[in-house]
Write a protein that binds this DNA or RNA. Structure first.
Lengths: 155, 155
DNA sequence: TATCGATACATGCAAATGCATCTAGTTTGA
DNA sequence: TCAAACTAGATGCATTTGCATGTATCGATA
């Protein structure tokens, strides 16, 4: 048996290995997904913004809310939205309650494109994840990652 | 009860939601990690290459092997290695068995820097993951993500 | 063994990204 | 109530990234 130091160190090691495994699995899956034909017309990061908007009940999100969901700097998101707007897929609106804020919403074309890519994307995901894990395992993975995300978000 | 179509669609939905949750948790954790002081001196992606080399038993890896672990195009990795080499952290060597190949290895300075950053990085991970999940949950998450990664890798 | 396709890595170049900074609007508190 | 500190988002600029392509080597086949 190791003493307290050994126990603490093994807890640290477990956390590190868990994160490493989560990260590498994300890389492996993402690599496959983004190489699919669905993302020839629109990069994954841009699709992700359309997707996030499509899932939001009000249909509108502040840029800083979107920024929380995406691994991009504030300025990069601003310019990514520029590109989406130039393509007519999203619309910027002044936030009614905050003069500094910008609300983003999907245009009709943006919504259509999201659905089109989304259908294929979801199929690709199912082909990768479905054979890898049983439904119970998927539910458990969903639960654990959601728990982790919630804990980290509440920093 | 829904018929076969309903069952299939719910399996697809579960896979999609699982992936979405895995992805968002990765984003949340990575965001925290990369904003830490450990990565002021070296970007996370560059650290990841040093780390990968440090874990490899032979101490040498082919560029294409590293490329499998990292979410970067081949050309981006090539230039990332240029930067590491310019800083004296890694060394390129011709692969003995394949005239096209390049072996990468850590220099002494690279190994030192990896250890220094790594110690702090591991601590940061433990502070994020440790409070979020019990050790059993972490082990299960590790198992599930590794199973997923292995399945996806074997395409 | 000469040829043709595939693989490993590098490089030119246009596009995307992040840092620092700017502007404008909001909140705080003396 | 007004100045100072703070927040949301945009922009200049240097760095990083990916796509397309180039060069060299490898492997299979005829």
């Amino acid at each position: 048996m190791s003493g307290p130091t050994g126990a603490a160190s093994s807890a640290v090691r477990l956390a590190a290995e868990t994160w490493e495994s989560l990260f590498r699995s994300q890389v492996a899956v993402m690599r496959k997904l983004q190489s699919g034909p669905a993302f020839k017309t629109l990069p994954v990061k841009e699709y992700d913004v359309l997707f996030t908007l499509s899932k939001c009940p009000s249909g509108q999100l502040r840029l800083n809310e979107i920024n929380d969901k995406v691994l991009l700097s504030q300025s990069s998101l601003s310019r990514l939205v520029d590109r989406l707007e130039k393509r007519g897929l999203v619309e910027r609106t002044a936030a009614p309650d905050d003069g500094r804020g910008v609300l983003l919403s999907l245009t009709e074309a943006g919504s259509e494109l999201q659905k089109t890519i989304g259908r294929e994307h979801v199929r690709d995901i199912a082909h990768l994840v479905g054979p890898a894990l049983t439904p119970e395992e998927q539910r458990e993975l969903l639960r654990l990652t959601e728990k982790l995300r919630a804990s980290v978000a509440g920093h």
